[in-house]
């Protein structure tokens, strides 16, 4: 953990060497998520509700997913950009160092410009948390935090799968964008709006709904099942198969090289 802090410090120093670029990229991140927000705002003011959810409720959902995604992108960037780590030989370097591979991949890349997106999420929270009319008990606050934590876990798991696939091929992996970028874009709305089939897919195949739709039901008093509040923790279990796939990938790399 101490070593992780050291890595973080050195990466922060590196990115601060290019201050203008850093600030502009962060602004760009903010603006693009602001556009997404305006899209929601326009739609919700025109239709008032979707699938029974109000603007404020959708905003809570949007901000939680956005925050989870931007934190995952910031701290698990190494997996997200793993194809370059392989192609520029950085992974060879990682393997000749006496530390765990996963730790090194995590620690070697962090993308602090995602603060732009994070800021947008915070702004939306600032408005939606009081405006949603939710009575914020301890349980509700815990649910919201669990949603974000679970989201970080699921996005991180998807990045790890993407990285593991890079060991086999780098072609055609943009399909994964449906689950990562798509998860962010379409996760703006509670996943039930896409119909039962899609909801099932995002519950059993990839667990987006576990940190998004179900806890939101609890949060907005549509359900009082404590289980829904704790489902984001189950979503973290998604990391286990992801790590297994990663292990298989590393073994494959060792036997083929770059």
């Amino acid at each position: 953990m101490r070593l992780y802090g050291k890595y973080m410090l050195i990466l922060l120093k590196c990115q601060m060497q290019y201050k203008t670029s850093f600030i502009l990229t962060a602004i760009g991140q903010f603006l693009s998520s602001f556009s997404a927000f305006l899209g929601i705002y326009f739609m919700m003011t025109r239709f008032n509700a979707v699938n029974g959810f109000t603007l404020e409720e959708v905003m809570l959902c949007f901000a939680a997913v956005l925050m989870a995604f931007s934190l995952a992108e910031c701290f698990f960037r190494g997996f997200d950009t793993f194809s370059t780590i392989i192609s520029n030989g950085e992974f060879d370097r990682i393997l000749v160092r006496p530390r765990n591979e996963i730790f090194q991949v995590l620690a070697s890349k962090m993308e602090f410009t995602r603060i732009g997106r994070l800021f947008q999420a915070v702004l939306v929270f600032c408005y939606a948390i009081p405006a949603s009319g939710i009575h914020w008990t301890f349980d509700k606050i815990a649910t919201l935090i669990l949603m974000i934590v679970g989201g970080i876990g699921v996005f991180c798991g998807l990045f790890i799968i993407y990285a593991a696939l890079c060991f086999f091929t780098t072609e055609g992996l943009e399909v994964m964008n449906i689950l990562t970028d798509g998860g962010r874009e379409f996760g703006k709305y509670p996943l039930s709006v896409y119909g039962k089939g899609i909801l099932k897919f995002f519950t059993y195949a990839v667990p987006h709904a576990l940190f998004q739709y179900y806890p939101l039901l609890y949060l907005t008093d549509r359900s009082d099942s404590k289980l829904y509040m704790l489902l984001p923790l189950l979503a973290l279990g998604f990391l286990i198969p992801c790590l297994i796939i990663w292990k298989i990938g590393v073994r494959h790399y060792r036997s083929t090289g770059s």
Binding site: F47, N48, A49, F186, Y189, V193, G195
Partner: peptide, 14 residues
């Protein structure tokens, strides 16, 4: 596909 499903939810709403 997902975009169209989303708009269909809005269509049903109003």
């Amino acid at each position: 596909f997902l975009s169209i499903l989303l708009f269909s939810a809005f269509y049903k709403a109003n």
